[in-house]
């Protein structure tokens, strides 16, 4: 079947089975490979994208249900939160192997869009769906707090 999907502000016509996970549509068809396959069962968070602004695991998102949604991937996530998060990630050299970091960043941006000054508890709940096998968690946490600080500085 043919589906029209909105990804990163563009409309794409995709010819595929409606049950195909969005993850593979993004990666194989649209060549947006920043979104990673890590587990395929919504355990690791490496495939997180934003669907109408909400973080979602694209490995468990069938193509047929996202045809009317706005999808944003790591390649195009932008705005104050995304900039602050990326700057904080860079300043702290968060990534090691880096494979999970697209998903981590997508979740961190979503968290900061909802909670301006997240506590450690907020970070735990929002980010514990994202596995980092290199265990860069402490730097991720610190970078989220840094980014929140940057964003607060911008608003005051």
């Amino acid at each position: 079947m043919s589906y029209a999907i909105f990804v990163n502000g563009q409309i794409h016509h995709v010819e595929d089975d409606g049950q195909t996970p969005l993850l593979w549509v993004l990666r194989d068809t649209l060549k947006l490979t920043g979104t990673k396959y890590g587990c395929g069962v919504a355990q690791c968070g490496a495939c997180t994208v934003h669907v109408d602004g909400q973080p979602m695991r694209s490995c468990t998102l069938p193509l047929e249900i996202v045809a009317s949604s706005q999808i944003t991937t790591i390649e195009a996530v932008e705005g104050a939160e995304a900039e602050a998060v990326r700057a904080a990630w860079l300043a702290r050299d968060v990534p090691q192997c880096g494979f999970c970091q697209s998903g981590q960043i997508m979740c961190a941006v979503a968290l900061l869009r909802t909670v301006g000054s997240p506590t450690d508890g907020d970070v735990d709940t929002a980010m514990s769906g994202n596995i980092c096998r290199c265990a860069t968690y402490n730097r991720i946490r610190a970078a989220i707090h840094d980014a929140a600080g940057t964003l607060r500085g911008q608003t005051t």
């Binding site: 947006l32 490979t33 920043g34 979104t35 990673k36 396959y37 991937t73 790591i74 390649e75 990326r86 990630w89 860079l90 050299d93 968060v94 990534p95 880096g98 494979f99 970091q101 697209s102 960043i105």
Partner: peptide
């Protein structure tokens, strides 16, 4: 690190 930027923009190419 020399490889942080591609790893935070989705630009790093892995085998996958």
């Amino acid at each position: 690190r020399k490889d942080t930027v591609p790893k935070i923009t989705g630009g790093q190419v892995y085998t996958q």
